[in-house]
Amino acid sequence: MAAEGGGLQIHPMDQFIVKPLFGEGAVHWYTPTNVTLWLMLAVVAIGLLMVVGTRRRAVVPSRSQSVAELIYGFIHNMVEDVAGHDGVKYFPYVMTLFLFVLFANLLGLIPMSFTTTSHVAVTATLALAVFLGVTLLGLARKGVGFLAMFWVSSAPLALRPILAVIELISYFVRPVSHSIRLAGNLMAGHAVLKVFAGFASVALVSPVAIGAMTAIYALELLVSVIQAYVFTILTCVYLKDAVGDAHH
């Protein structure tokens, strides 16, 4: 790895290592690991907000209930605006994705925590689920008409095959960019935080390093929320291809 010999010992990627929760040993598919712990903490946090927070069903909401209602209204409007009226019945899926990504991102910002969404394995699963779901849904709802998306009828006839190839490639790159964007953003942010944390051990630059960490931490908070938003809105955009009108 990077640093050999003396001097700084910065291992910015060590925070992403998947370890068994109890004891040492190999990681089997069923082993409870730190990934498991933080995934379940995300589930618990979502349960606290969305279920416990709304338990009183008050007409005049409490603080946690208004947050839950705010998220509900926000995502509901997003699905309705972006994916159209037909997309509203997939609202629970979009809501699940949004809440999971948001809470995983935010929980990952707790010091010493593990950021599940910084792992390509996690985000690629999410993105592939969206990709496969949207593709199958589009084929089921529109049949061959779904493939008309790749055949740009407004372009000159000679250009259409080339455009079709480009569209096809961009369609299949979607899950890649969808997942790498989320994982990359979080990984980069956390790695940078870790690098600055390493610099903080040098007395000379530690005030600067700590100030920079504070600033980057604030930026990362913003990034966490924005990436969750972007992940969700892209899901809605993809969903529109499957359920929306071809000529909108």
Binding site: W29, F100, L126
Partner: peptide
Amino acid sequence: MPQLDFTTYGNQIFWLVVALVAIY
């Protein structure tokens, strides 16, 4: 790079699916 350690993928995906189903 821990993200490219494919031996942990099965574990992560399994628990992710569990978490997603629980949230759903």
